[in-house]
């Protein structure tokens, strides 16, 4: 803890404060779409960021506040970690003005991520809609880095338009390596240059065969979940093999402030990743 230079009265005591963030240096900042910026960060205290794919961090700029974000890189890549920020409000606007060399303030890792033990040795399907590709990229990279530990790996990605596609370098790579990841993509609305699939994400299920023994991860806008869940039920995938990565309003990230609640569950500590069987009885889970 450093002195903030305010000359104030509060004591710099040794009592742990769960709200105290750690400083992370921006190693790289790249505007990837009109509204999204991709950051690569390194913790300044040298202690690293020891997270699991699917976990989140509260990321902030002083004077503006904090927002919850899923890690967008795999913990197997230990030197640094990635976050993608979409400009939607005051805090994200402030974050997205930052450049290489500046700092973000991070609390985390928080919440519970994907159950990797449950996935190992099985086929995996990831269904990512829009910005849902960011938190799942952590798992995608993890699987790619430890490819032999998993069975068939399929990835569905749906974006609004071709311009909204994220991680375009990754996409180029994934399109080429069918034996590593079977990648299918779609857009809601194409443009002149788009030769691929047009339609909602569930149209991609017709493009491949998903075995009922697949472990499935779903992450996307609130409206997407119930349609994908319906497809998975048709395919016979058991409900406890379906992992949903959910978004809610968050403030504290530590199960206190109440903003993220879905019935009696706290997305920030009990989630953001839930199995469908764990939350299907919760009336507030799906929009």
């Amino acid at each position: 803890m450093s002195n903030c230079g305010n000359g104030c009265s509060c004591n710099d005591s040794a009592i742990d404060n769960v709200f105290l963030p750690r400083e992370a240096e921006i190693l790289r900042a790249e505007q990837v779409t009109a509204s999204e910026k991709h950051f690569t960060l390194k913790m300044k205290d040298g202690k690293g960021m020891d997270f699991q794919p699917g976990q989140i961090a509260e990321v902030g700029v002083f004077g503006y506040g904090e927002i919850p974000l899923g890690f967008a890189s795999s913990p197997t890549r230990t030197h640094s970690f990635d976050l993608v920020v979409r400009t939607v409000g005051r805090v994200s606007t402030a974050i997205n003005k930052l450049e290489k060399g500046q700092s973000l303030w991070v609390r985390g890792p928080l919440g519970s991520g994907f159950n990797l033990e449950e996935m190992r040795g099985h086929d995996v399907l990831i269904v990512a809609g829009g910005i849902g590709l960011c938190p799942t990229r952590s798992l995608i990279q993890y699987i790619l880095d430890r490819r032999s530990e998993f069975g068939k790996f399929t990835l569905f990605f749906g974006a609004r338009t071709p311009k909204d596609q994220l991680f375009t370098d990754d996409l180029v790579q994934w399109r080429k390596t069918k034996d590593v990841v079977e990648y299918h993509e779609t857009v809601d609305k194409g443009d002149d240059s788009w030769k691929g699939n047009v339609g909602v994400i569930t149209t991609l299920f017709a493009k491949t065969k998903i075995s009922p023994d697949t472990r499935v991860v779903v992450c996307g806008p609130p409206v997407m979940y119930k349609f994908v869940i319906r497809e998975l039920a048709k395919l016979g995938v058991p409900e406890n093999h379906v992992y949903l990565d959910l978004e809610r309003r968050m403030k504290c990230g530590i199960g206190k402030c109440g903003h993220c609640q879905i019935n009696d569950k706290y997305v920030c500590v009990d989630g953001p990743v839930f199995t469908y069987s764990d939350i299907k009885h919760l009336e507030e889970a799906f929009a």
Binding site: M1, C4, G5, S9, C10, S13, F19
Partner: peptide, 16 residues
């Protein structure tokens, strides 16, 4: 309730 103070030199906890 004040949780943190921040300034040009960083941040500190306000538990007092």
């Amino acid at each position: 309730q004040k949780l943190l103070e921040f300034g040009p030199n960083g941040v500190k906890s306000c538990i007092n």
